[in-house]
């Protein structure tokens, strides 16, 4: 069985167990209100995780998502506060700035050849710093977390019969993301680059472009998620989204993506986001110490990535037929 299929089954199983346990121990758990709230939270992590899924499938990562969320929110806040531009335009600007951030990441990785994790860890600092630069300040220069009261903007918080817009957006984007991944040329190339970089090169795939596309998608997803988060909070605080990147990566890992690349998909990350949110919410309802979240998330990431490594090792050992001989399989054969 494929690695990501097994992992999805395991995660789904764990999720079901969690749902059962939590609904038994807390009577408020399975109420519609709670479910919709849960989904709303999952949407924000989830929307961002759609983009990060692309990055991880290319055997890369994106650690700048949290900072990107904050930056986009701050930029939107500035436009909403200082200008009278229609909300729709402001949101567009926000998404574009998220895309620009993604391009920066793409440039660092594709052109300057920085390793993904260093590039995005650095841009995390840069974007977070820029958020502070753009922070709305009062006359004395102190950061004032101005609450945005623009009613058109606050529409984003609306819902249809309880189901929040953000959740709808999440599922729509997830479907689009999955289709792009599975049905487009870009999606095929994304998997190819992650699974075997060399072979992709030989087949004429432009690796740089695929990486840049992945970061672009991640940047846009961070922007959309960030906008919903901003709308939910009502004000753009510079600390927005701290720790989000870790949650997003946890969601993608739980969803079955392997860091070695070439495996996993968006639906898995949807599962992972829901799982994470249910876990956190359940722990909270069980009144467990809030630090357990970090501990459990960290442990899950470690355990699942170890599993991936072991499983794929076993798979390659038992693959049908003979494998190319170790020492003598020199490319180009005999001289």
């Amino acid at each position: 069985m494929k690695q990501d299929t097994i992992r999805k089954f395991v995660s789904l199983g764990l999720l079901l167990i969690l749902l059962v346990v939590f609904s038994l121990t807390s009577e408020y758990f399975l109420t519609p209100a709670n479910i919709f709230t849960l989904l709303r939270e999952a949407s924000i992590i989830g929307i961002v995780s759609i983009g990060v899924t692309f990055c991880i499938i290319t055997a890369g990562t994106d650690f700048s998502t949290g900072a990107n969320v904050a930056l986009v929110s701050m930029i939107c806040a500035n436009f909403l506060y200082y200008t009278g531009l229609p909300v729709f335009i402001v949101l567009l600007i926000g998404v574009l700035s998220g895309a620009a951030a993604g391009c920066v990441n793409g440039f660092l990785v594709a052109r300057l050849r920085l390793p993904d994790f260093i590039a995005t860890l650095s841009t995390q600092g840069v974007f977070r710093g820029l958020t502070f630069v753009f922070a709305i300040r009062s006359a004395t220069g102190v950061i004032s977390n101005k609450v945005i009261t623009n009613p058109d903007f606050l529409l984003l918080n609306g819902d249809i019969g309880g189901l929040y817009y953000s959740t709808i957006a999440f599922f729509v984007l997830a479907v689009i993301g999955q289709l792009v991944l599975k049905r487009t040329k870009l999606g095929t190339y994304t998997y190819a680059v992650g699974a075997d970089r060399k072979a992709s090169e030989f087949s004429g795939i432009n690796i740089g472009r695929v990486k840049i596309a992945a970061f672009l998608i991640s940047g846009i997803c961070s922007a959309v998620g960030g906008i919903f988060l901003f709308a939910k909070l009502g004000s753009a605080i510079p600390d927005l989204g701290i720790g989000l990147e870790f949650d997003v990566i946890a969601a993608v890992v739980v969803g079955g993506c392997a860091f070695s690349g070439g495996r996993g998909d968006v639906f898995g990350s949807v599962l992972g986001s829901v799982f994470l949110v249910v876990l956190v919410n359940g722990l909270y309802k069980l009144q467990m110490h809030v630090s357990y979240q970090l501990i459990i998330k960290g442990a899950i990431i470690i355990l699942m990535t170890i599993f991936d490594s072991v499983y794929m090792d076993l798979m390659s050992k038992y693959s049908r037929g003979k494998s190319p001989r170790a020492g003598e399989a020199v490319s180009g054969g005999a001289q």
Partner: peptide, 8 residues
């Protein structure tokens, strides 16, 4: 000998 296929 080292084939250039994408395994996944």
């Amino acid at each position: 000998q080292e084939l250039s296929l994408i395994p996944t």
